[in-house]
């Protein structure tokens, strides 16, 4: 079975946006384009959850159709995976719910079904989650305060790649940082099926002062369409070979 491709932006940040348009607006735009926006707010060990930050993070993921979570940096790895997987399930469940509404009437969702039927439907959702292709654009906030956390971010992204590449479906990852040099975002790592090559790139990230989260999400959204034709042709070629054992 060939399932569709799920598209996600994973935003890793530690603070409030302070420049450009409202990030929940651009997140809503991305969601309209079929791209889910997930947000992970990373706190320092001595930091307490500030309400303004929390609210913004929650707002972005709500309008972006995704999942949000606040964590301390040591538990980042597990959270990154949990958020990504949960967002996949949520998106797929959204499709299923839409179908259910068409079949069963306007107000029926998964929760209104008895546990047995729900179980059968969840099996389908799980199958889809395992076999769907997934594209994740990781958007890393590199404003000054994030500097100490970049090592942890790197480790958790490699870990995410291990987990997702253990699935049956194919994956593609790209990493962008913001703010960029004279741009809203900066390409760190181009679309690729694995993230293990990032170890060498990450320490080179420079930290800036501003946090243009809104414009960064908008730019990130455009990167999903930008994959060059040539490369995608090559990729299809290669994956065609990989799939002979299917």
């Amino acid at each position: 079975m060939r399932s569709g491709t799920l598209k996600q932006i994973l935003l890793l940040t530690d603070g409030c946006s302070n420049r450009g348009e409202d990030p929940s607006v651009t997140a809503a735009l991305a969601y309209q384009q079929g791209i889910t926006v997930n947000v992970i707010g990373i706190l320092d060990d001595d930091q307490t959850e500030e309400s303004a930050e929390l609210k913004e993070i929650e707002e972005i993921s709500l309008s972006g159709g995704g999942v949000s979570q606040i964590v301390y940096s040591e538990s980042l790895s597990q959270t990154v995976q949990m958020v990504t997987k949960q967002a996949m399930t949520q998106t797929l469940q959204g499709f299923v719910n839409k179908e259910l509404k068409q079949i069963l009437g306007s107000n029926q969702t998964l929760e209104d079904l008895d546990p047995e039927k729900r179980g059968e439907i969840m099996e389908v959702v799980e199958d889809l989650g395992e076999t769907s292709d997934l594209e994740v654009l990781v958007l890393v906030d590199t404003s000054a305060s994030m500097h100490d956390k970049l090592q942890t971010v790197k480790e958790s992204l490699i870990d995410l790649s291990i987990s997702l590449n253990s699935r049956i479906g194919r994956n593609r990852f790209a990493i962008y940082s913001f703010p960029g040099k004279r741009k809203d975002i900066q390409k760190v790592f181009d679309w690729s099926p694995k993230l293990d090559a990032i170890s060498t790139i990450f320490p080179k990230l420079t930290s800036g002062g501003i946090t243009p989260t809104g414009p960064a999400i908008r730019e990130a959204m455009y990167q999903f369409g930008k994959k060059s034709l040539l490369r995608s042709l090559k990729h299809e070629d290669k994956s065609g070979l990989e799939e002979t054992g299917y």
Partner: peptide, 13 residues
Amino acid sequence: KGTSMTVEVNVLK
């Protein structure tokens, strides 16, 4: 977490 619970039940079954 209804979804995760349903998945667990499926395994148990």
